[in-house]
């Protein structure tokens, strides 16, 4: 698993990258009550706002971690946003994207680096 400074995790699954938010991020957000996901087929650039997530406290944006195309989204977290708090690094993934070059993930933090990052 790889991590961004925006507290997203990325995992390679075949030729796709699965993206979600970290347990740390979910804890900071508090109870998630609303998730808006992009349309599959959307082409995105790194740092585009692709997901809106609202907790009991506030609204936040999730940014595209890399350039690529959104190919699949997890409707289960739209139906039951509470899943994001229950299993953020598993069942509650946000979207899967296709990227040109999987080696772009090498730039991101690994588990140990992310742990240091969040202190």
């Amino acid at each position: 698993m790889k991590f961004t400074e925006q507290h997203e995790w990325l995992e390679i699954e075949g030729d796709l990258v699965v993206v979600g938010i970290t347990t740390h991020a979910a804890e900071q957000l508090g109870d998630v009550v609303f998730v808006e996901l992009p349309e599959p087929g959307t082409t995105v650039s790194k740092d585009d706002e692709v997901v809106v997530i609202e907790s009991v406290k506030a609204a936040s944006d999730i940014l595209a971690p890399l350039d690529g195309e959104i190919v699949e989204v997890n409707e289960a977290i739209v139906e039951d946003p509470g899943k994001v708090n229950e299993d953020p690094e598993g069942e509650a993934w946000f979207f899967k994207m296709k990227i040109e070059d999987l080696s772009a993930l090498d730039e991101l933090m690994d588990d140990a680096a992310y742990k240091d990052f969040v202190g």
């Binding site: 508090g30 109870d31 009550v33 009991v56 406290k57 509470g82 708090n85």
Partner: peptide, 10 residues
């Protein structure tokens, strides 16, 4: 305190 361990919803 804005919340405790249970969290706002619970």
């Amino acid at each position: 305190p804005v919340q405790y361990k249970l969290g706002v919803m619970k």
